[in-house]
Design a protein around this nucleic acid. Structure first.
Length: 224
DNA sequence: CCCTGATTCGC
DNA sequence: GCGAATCAGG
């Protein structure tokens, strides 16, 4: 079936009316949905909201490498972070009156340890009937200061450091102590620096040049 | 899976 | 120019 003037007029009318390409194809008959879309484009008909074109800032024609991109985006929240927000202070000390400078001995004697009679469920220590003891004095209030980052993550770009201006290329693996991100200045408009853009993006080859043979995960005839 | 429109490219 | 094949989001 060819595109006669009548059919083209009908296409324009139905298209502008908001019918979907499939509906128009059915209405016209003898053409596929793709034929309708192709013709509409060639006629320069106003494109309608496409599910696939929601993102307007789709500048690059290449597709990001999924593994790299997703790795950067789904990095676990427990990845090590530099400069943490006021982190809970270390466990309160039992001997609050012992500043580090005053007592060089690492293991000072502990004169008032309660006598352990037994261990109750959950691990707490039971006291004997006569062992009544003043409650352990709570640690005096201390000002909370940010903990120093551990050496292996110092100066590394953490998840919380990410923004649109720096390279989000992950280095190492999420969960590992020194997992971090590249952090170099990002290639404007891209999530990565120039170097890592070169890894994440590649030019799309013409269809005929793509590697056709799909992988055969299972079932291929055993060659030997 | 179904649907959608957009795009590519052999013909 | 045509439209199947393909893509990619819903």
């Amino acid at each position: 079936m060819s595109w006669t003037d009548e059919r083209i007029d009908r296409l324009k009318e139905l298209w502008s009316k908001g019918m979907t390409a499939s509906q128009i194809a059915d209405e016209l008959g003898g053409v596929s949905r793709n034929a309708v879309i192709g013709k509409a484009h060639r006629l320069g008909l106003q494109s309608r909201p496409s599910p696939v074109k929601a993102n307007e800032a789709a500048q690059p024609k290449a597709k990001p490498v999924p593994a790299a991109a997703s790795a950067a985006e789904i990095a676990p929240a427990d990845a090590p972070r530099k400069d943490p927000a006021p982190k809970p202070a270390p466990p309160p000390q039992q001997q609050p009156a012992a500043p580090a400078a005053a007592q060089p001995q690492p293991a000072p004697a502990q004169p008032q340890q309660p006598r352990i009679v037994s261990v109750g469920p959950g691990g707490f220590l039971r006291q004997g009937p006569g062992d009544q003891q003043a409650p352990i004095p709570p640690a005096p209030p201390r000002r909370l200061v940010p903990a120093k980052p551990s050496p292996e993550v110092a100066d590394k770009t953490s998840l919380l450091d990410l923004n649109e201006k720096i390279c989000k290329w992950p280095l190492g693996h999420p969960g590992e102590p020194d997992f971090h991100f590249c952090g170099a200045p990002a290639n404007p408009g891209f999530p990565y620096c120039v170097e890592h853009c070169g890894v994440a993006y590649q030019a799309q080859l013409p269809r005929r040049d793509r590697r056709p043979p799909p992988p055969l995960p299972f079932g291929g005839p055993r060659i030997r």
